[in-house]
Simulated assay, not measured.
Amino acid sequence: MKKVVNSKVFKTFLAGVLLIAATHMSVHAEEWKYAMGEGESDPQGIYAVAFKNYIEENSRHTIKIYPVGTLGEETDMLEQTRAGILQFLGQSTGYMGGTIPEMDLFTLPYVMPTDTKQLDYFFKHSKVINDMLPEIFREHGLELLSIFPEGEMAVTTLEPFHSPADLKGRKMRVMPGSPILVETYEAFGASPVPMSWGDLIGALKTKMVDGQENPTVWIEAYDLDNLTNVLTYTGHGHFNASASANKKFFDALSKRDQELVRAAAAHAHQVILNEAQKLDAYGLGRIVRTNPSYKIVTLTESERAPFKEAAKAVQASFASKSASNKSVLDQMMADLKEAEKKAE
């Protein structure tokens, strides 16, 4: 009789343990929302999918991705993430300058190199990215996970240009939310028009604007080469993006899940570093093949010189806005010098 009782007790105990374990697992197996400013086949999308796959392959959590346009404009998604409605956000650094002024660092003209080895080293080892900006993000309710390059900026216009004088009076669309982009195109001689991505296509079709800037992969993917006549490489910058999490959400995660998120971000970061350069080259190649009459121009060093000179005032303006701006710019310049040496 004693053995029977013990057997029943053991079975009851085991059932309780299994029930508790199942409850524990179901509570902690969550669906997390990830919104971004691009489609799933674009650089931010490639990062987001790699992030999602890593999370789902290494935990019971799932990620639901919301591509561009599904949850409003870029500023809407940023505020939804800060409010905790979304857990993760992929967004161009250019859109973030209005909320986090230091992020305009990445849109400053003629600061970032065009050499891909230097860029890769910088984005992996930069002190400004790994040490300084995470603290700044936390002040705005966000946990910074990654900043990565999407491709060299190219300018598409209806008419060619080779100097700031050629751009005088031309209406150039710039991303909203970044004062530095406005200052940049004013310094370049143009008339900048802040405008959301959703309005850009119609504005080009109706000639409300005379041009815009984007990486080649975007220009080809969204047929911007068919809405303009010339693509110009000025060498003035790269299109960069960030990935971040809501800080309260991240802080509330278990240590194991925090490590999981960090590992997923590191994995996705490496994936996009490997893919971004290829995407840019593929975009240009497809434009050349499908639109052979489209004019592609690379400004010479002598043609770039007056643009670089004009850019100095924009860099100085950024640094003068706050001590924090100056601090991150000084550190970035030091980081870039190190990247130039180490990437040789």
Rank of each mutant, 00 (worst) to 15 (best):
A165R: 11
D166H: 06
P179Q: 08
R170Y: 07
A203N: 04
I219W: 09
G177N: 01
K168V: 05
F250P: 00
A252F: 06
G169T: 00
K168C: 04
G211Q: 03
E213S: 14
D251M: 07
T184S: 08
Q212V: 13
E159R: 08
T216P: 06
E183D: 14
E220G: 06
V217M: 15
T216S: 14
T156G: 12
M208R: 15
T156I: 15
P194Y: 02
D166M: 09
L158F: 12
A221I: 00
A245M: 02
T156F: 14
R173Y: 06
R170T: 05
K207W: 04
S196L: 13
A190K: 00
M195A: 04
N226V: 07
N226Q: 15
F161V: 05
K247E: 12
W197G: 14
F239Q: 14
N226C: 12
F161D: 07
T228P: 03
K248F: 04
A203W: 04
T228M: 11
G235W: 10
H162F: 15
N246G: 01
T184L: 12
S163A: 10
L167Y: 04
M195Q: 10
L204R: 02
K207G: 01
L158T: 07
S196A: 13
G177F: 07
D251P: 00
F249N: 03
S242Y: 05
G169S: 01
K168M: 11
Y222A: 09
R173H: 09
L231I: 11
N226T: 13
V230S: 05
K248T: 08
E159K: 09
E159C: 02
W197E: 13
A165D: 15
P179N: 06
W218G: 14
G177H: 02
A154F: 14
L204Y: 03
Q212E: 15
G237I: 03
W197C: 09
G237T: 01
D225E: 15
E220D: 13
L181D: 11
S196W: 11
A245T: 00
L158G: 10
P160L: 09
K247W: 09
I180N: 13
L158V: 09
L227E: 10
M172E: 04
E159P: 00
T156Q: 13
A241M: 14
I219P: 01
F161N: 03
F250K: 01
L181H: 10
N246A: 02
V217A: 15
E220A: 12
A241G: 12
D199H: 12
T157D: 06
G202Y: 10
H238W: 15
V155D: 14
F188C: 03
P176S: 04
I201D: 13
F249V: 07
S242R: 06
V174D: 06
W218S: 15
G169M: 05
Y233C: 02
E220T: 01
G235Y: 08
K171E: 05
P160W: 04
T234D: 10
D210K: 00
I201W: 12
N229G: 12
K168Y: 05
N214Y: 13
L167G: 01
